[in-house]
Design a protein around this nucleic acid. Structure first.
Lengths: 157, 157
DNA sequence: ATATCTGCAAAGACTTTGCATGAGA
DNA sequence: TCTCATGCAAAGTCTTTGCAGATAT
């Protein structure tokens, strides 16, 4: 139920309350940061961004909250091979931003792509069904990443 | 060129020499361990296994060697979300063992599956071509994993 | 009112680095 | 021989934990 001014309420409140978790300043701040970027933020990135508006919020809380958000399914956690975890909102307000990643093993750059997503997702859904049945798994999520050298790194040598 | 007795020479020697790297006892031992298992070994797992036959080989060497093998492309490095990296030979002597992973987010169990692999790989190849062209990437590798709850964890609650 | 959440500091876990010794080609 | 590889110890990073005080409902 959006506000009259069109800014809308934080769309995640429902999901939060439904799980019996408290909606606190730090949690809202962290979700705010994540929802305003399309980058792949590390815990420290989130901390620094949150820190600007709420200097009192500590890194520990960032880690704990991110873990919680991952558990709830509001956030995805990625490993791009650089030794720190990256976090991304799993869906926008409109569930709009599904994408996969292209990771440069040279410089660590990560490119989001949405090309071929439809075919990929279709195949993934089929595969999910089959795997669920065969292994009696309840599949909740998938990960696809491609690795290689980006144009810059290729020309470097 | 296999030995007459059929045991064959370590099939990776060629790849090794070709890259100008030395073929040492620790490196052979580590490849030996990896080639004799179908499990997803952590650096410490490899260390312990190697340690039985060669107690002098240290954990540092394991890490350095695994890194090297990943660079050469002989080994894949995975992250299953439990905080430690896992390593797997990228191909058997016959290039036989391509598979993807099903990861239980409850207990961390990892199941290898080869079902649907053909369709998946076919789609991935197509996608790779498209992405390579669009982003001018040289794609060398891909990662697919499914996440969910295994049968045991589902019945736990 | 009270079970949850937070912040700080310290601990923990995995991985990397420095440097002198040892070993492959 | 001479560069590359190894082992040990120490350091480095990211992440988690313990606990007292603060907070949402």
């Amino acid at each position: 139920m959006p506000f009259r001014d069109g800014t809308g309420p934080p769309w995640w409140q429902g999901k939060f309350r439904g799980c019996g978790y408290r909606l606190t300043i730090p949690r809202e701040a962290i979700l705010g940061v994540l929802s305003k970027t399309s980058k792949h933020l590390s815990a420290e990135d989130v901390y620094l961004a949150v820190h600007k508006a709420y200097p009192a919020i500590g890194l520990t809380t960032i880690y704990r909250t991110l873990d919680l958000l991952v558990q709830i399914g509001l956030v995805f956690k990625f490993d791009f091979g650089d030794g720190r975890a990256r976090y991304e909102l799993s869906e926008g307000p409109k569930g709009a931003s599904h994408h996969h990643h292209l990771v440069c093993t040279g410089c660590g750059r990560v490119i989001d792509y949405t090309d071929f997503i439809d075919e990929e997702v279709e195949l993934l859904n089929r595969t999910e069904k089959g795997l669920s049945k065969k292994f009696n798994f309840r599949i909740t999520n998938h990960l696809i990443q491609f690795y290689g050298l980006c144009d810059r790194c290729r020309s470097k040598k």
